[in-house]
């Protein structure tokens, strides 16, 4: 029994840390722009396919595939900001960019569908079948890689936001764009930087999720819906809250699969979301951001 709980705990950390990577991107963008990017889902999908193409077509190693996914994600993020969010920023509507990115998402999904077809791709990595035994527990090297890469990225991102000049400037833009501008911070460049970082994270998590997911052009949607729940549960724009909520959703997923029924995962996650919104709409970790509640 203990070993089952520990084993599912590990599985929860694996899937949860991937959700954190995706959700952090959403929350970063929300932090500086107070906007939601629905096309974030398709950046995840694109990352997964970029890694698939690198490893299966060009025969490169999986690590190169992860790098390719990172670059592909960053490029798409740059494009989405340059074509959608940047031109719409002056209009000041919170609704229009959201709807525009829903359109982008439909467009990208169907473009990938036309190119790649609806049949799921079998994404094998050399590490998927390599199992490590730790006492009574099992851990594939793939899962180990996921934990290492995602926690390293999360720590790097956290350090970047906390301690570097650019990170501080980013937080300044998030807090008050006009005052940051008065202090000589170019908010447009920093918003673009945020998009590129957020989308690179999403692309990379796509490469790591690829072997776990049913890899179709619609794979990102199931991830992003949970990522939305995570950012709300954690508090939009709040990095610590997002990390905690992401791991929480990972645990919910693995333990619901073990003890209840896999079909109930989304119901439990979104019941928690609605409960959070009803009881504590600012998220698990309270922030000063209250304009939406």
């Amino acid at each position: 029994m203990i070993s089952i709980v520990l084993q599912q705990g590990i599985n929860g950390i694996v899937i949860g840390s991937l959700y954190v990577l995706v959700a952090l991107g959403l929350t970063l963008i929300y932090g500086v722009l107070v906007q939601i990017n629905f096309a974030h889902a398709d950046i995840v999908t694109l990352g997964a396919f970029a890694a698939y193409a690198t490893t299966h077509f060009f025969g490169e190693s999986y690590v190169v595939g992860i790098a390719a996914a990172l670059i592909a994600g960053a490029a798409l993020g740059w494009l989405v900001n340059a074509t959608i969010f940047s031109p719409l920023r002056e209009r000041g509507s919170e609704l229009l960019p959201l709807i525009a990115t829903i359109g982008v998402s439909i467009m990208l999904q169907n473009a990938m569908l036309a190119l790649l077809g609806p049949i799921p791709y079998a994404f094998d990595t050399p590490y998927s079948n390599h199992v490590l035994r730790l006492g009574g527990l099992f851990l594939t090297v793939q899962n180990m890689l996921i934990i290492v890469v995602s926690s390293a990225s999360i720590i790097l991102l956290y350090g970047f936001m906390r301690f570097t000049f650019l990170g501080k400037a980013l937080r300044a833009v998030a807090q008050d764009r006009e005052t940051a501008g008065l202090l000589g911070i170019n908010s447009n460049q920093l918003i673009m930087l945020t998009f590129v970082i957020a989308s690179a994270l999403a692309g990379m998590s796509g490469a790591l999720l690829g072997p776990v997911l049913v890899l179709t052009p619609f794979a990102g949607t199931s991830v992003i819906v949970k990522a939305f729940a995570i950012v709300i549960i954690g508090g939009f724009g709040n990095i610590e809250g997002t990390i905690i909520a992401g791991l929480l959703v990972g645990f919910i997923e693995s333990f619901t699969t073990q003890f209840l029924d896999p079909g109930l995962i989304d119901i439990v996650v979104f019941a928690l979301l609605l409960l959070t919104l009803a009881v504590r709409p600012t998220g698990l970790i309270a922030d000063k951001r209250e304009e939406n509640v």
Binding site: L98, A229, F270
Partner: peptide
């Protein structure tokens, strides 16, 4: 209690459930 994006996600959550 909610506005804008929070309401959008809450209603999306309702649709998923």
């Amino acid at each position: 209690r909610l506005r804008g994006h929070y309401l959008a996600i809450a209603s999306l959550g309702f649709a998923v459930i």
